[in-house]
Simulated scan of single mutants.
Amino acid sequence: MTDYAFAFTLLFAAILTLGVLTKFYLASRQVRHVAQHRARVPTAFAATISLDAHQKAADYTIAKTRFGMLESAFSAAVLLGWTLLGGLDTLNQAIARAGIAEYGTLVPQLALLAAFGLISGMLDLPFTLYSTFRIEERFGFNKMTFGLWLGDLVKSTLVGLLIGLPIVALILWLMGSAGAWWWLWAWGAWMGFNLLVLVLFPTVIAPLFNKFKPLDDDALKARVTALMQRCGFAAKGLFVMDGSKRSAHANAYFTGFGAAKRVVFYDTLLKQLNPGEVDAVLAHELGHFKHKHIIKRIVSMFAMSLAGFALLGWLSTQVWFYTGLGVRPN
């Protein structure tokens, strides 16, 4: 290992450790603060929130935060195992010995990424199961059966492969065929892919998992439309999603891009809140639109991904980058 590779190994380990410690510190402060104020409803909400509801919310926050700390520690350990402990290198060498390169130079690379994603997903499954069927169940939020959860897992995996493998294959092909500026072409392809997903998600992807029906409450529809018009927001439609088949949590969101924008209400939201409270939730979402948060987020994503691809373009030519992460370059 060269001096550069050793220095990068130390830097990587230091950043990983600092990140975990920072998350633990902030999460611990949050848990202590919530626990200290669990016994009494804040004065501003005392007239509308019962002590039981307040304590349930506090206990749920503490349970989720503590579980999140465990997840963070496990994720860091897995990342360490993939990199400095040689997991990714072992997987790469095993795929290289499989002799599948004869089917094309991209095949081993796609196989490596697919195997990495599959193994990582399997390692995360116990945490997902525990979160859904223990924590969410304990607090009365989970409405999923194991069959529905398993069906979602299969569908999300297939959708990920269907839309993910082509863009990954394109980027890998550009890395080997587009010369020194491959990263710029790859960035353009990645941004186009993300914009396409924004357009397709409401009408193609989301209906694979949930049912959406037009909002049929005329009074509520009039209130919502009037509120959106005051903010200058135009949506293609107002829809209700059957969120109750998975969770008792309530929510509303905007989705889509350009002319395909739509407003979606969880059915749980409409059951739990009165019209004025629904207005308040929608007003929060409209605030994101009014302050151009969505546009700003897209621009930020463009800028950060461009910087990321440019950095990757340079690092991909540095042997110390691979060896410093415990991977032997092919």
Rank of each mutant, 00 (worst) to 15 (best):
A101R: 03
L70K: 11
F127Q: 14
L85V: 12
L148G: 00
I95C: 00
L91R: 07
P126S: 07
A115C: 11
A114F: 11
V107A: 00
L110A: 07
L84Y: 14
F74L: 01
Y130E: 06
L125H: 04
F127W: 12
Y130G: 06
L162Q: 01
G68M: 07
W183E: 04
W182P: 00
D124F: 07
F193E: 09
E136Y: 10
A114S: 13
L174I: 02
F74T: 07
I163G: 06
V154C: 02
W185D: 05
T157H: 04
G87A: 06
A186H: 00
R134P: 11
A96H: 13
P126I: 01
T132N: 11
L113T: 05
Q93I: 06
G99E: 03
T61F: 05
F133V: 08
S72L: 08
N92E: 08
L80T: 13
V78S: 04
F127N: 07
L148R: 14
L113K: 01
W190F: 15
A189E: 08
A115N: 03
V154M: 07
L150D: 02
A76R: 10
G140A: 11
L162Y: 01
L148S: 13
W183P: 05
G151H: 03
A169K: 08
M191Y: 12
S72T: 15
G99K: 04
R97N: 10
L80S: 00
I62V: 13
Q109S: 15
Q109D: 11
G68H: 01
E102V: 15
R66S: 02
F193H: 09
E136V: 14
